[in-house]
Simulated assay, not measured.
Amino acid sequence: MSRLPPPPLENLRRHLRARKNRAGARDSFLRETFTLPRGEARLKAREWFERYPKAAYWTEVESWRVLPGDEVEFTMRRLPSAD
Rank of each mutant, 00 (worst) to 15 (best):
E40H: 11
E62F: 09
E32A: 14
L9A: 09
E62C: 01
P37N: 07
R77I: 01
S28V: 06
E60N: 10
R65G: 04
R3A: 13
L4A: 11
R77N: 07
R42S: 10
P8H: 10
R31D: 11
P7G: 03
E10F: 03
E47I: 02
R38P: 03
R14V: 06
A25T: 06
F29E: 04
Y57W: 12
R3H: 13
E32Q: 14
R77C: 04
P80W: 04
Y52Q: 01
M1V: 08
W48H: 11
D83N: 07
R13L: 15
V72C: 05
L12T: 13
R46H: 09
N21G: 03
E73A: 07
E50S: 13
A55D: 14
P68K: 13
R22I: 01
R31F: 04
E73C: 09
P8Y: 02
R46T: 08
G24D: 09
R22K: 13
M1C: 07
Y57H: 15
F34Y: 15
A56R: 14
R78H: 15
Y57E: 02
K54S: 09
R78T: 00
L9V: 12
S63C: 06
T33L: 07
R51K: 15
G39E: 14
T35A: 09
K44W: 00
W64I: 04
E73W: 06
R78M: 02
E73K: 13
E71Q: 08
V72N: 01
E60L: 14
P5F: 03
A41C: 08
D27T: 09
L12P: 01
P7K: 11
L36T: 06
P6T: 11
R38F: 03
R46I: 05
R31C: 10
L12D: 12
P80R: 01
A23K: 10
A82G: 13
R3F: 04
D27W: 08
R42L: 10
N21F: 02
T59W: 04
P68M: 01
P7L: 12
G39R: 06
R3K: 13
N21T: 12
G69W: 09
A25L: 13
L79F: 07
T35L: 08
A82H: 07
R65K: 15
A45T: 14
W58L: 12
R17P: 00
F29H: 15
P8W: 03
M1Q: 09
P8C: 10
L67F: 04
S63V: 06
K20E: 14
L43H: 09
K20P: 01
R46P: 00
R65H: 15
S2T: 12
E10S: 07
F34S: 02
P80G: 03
A56N: 09
K20N: 07
P8F: 01
P80K: 02
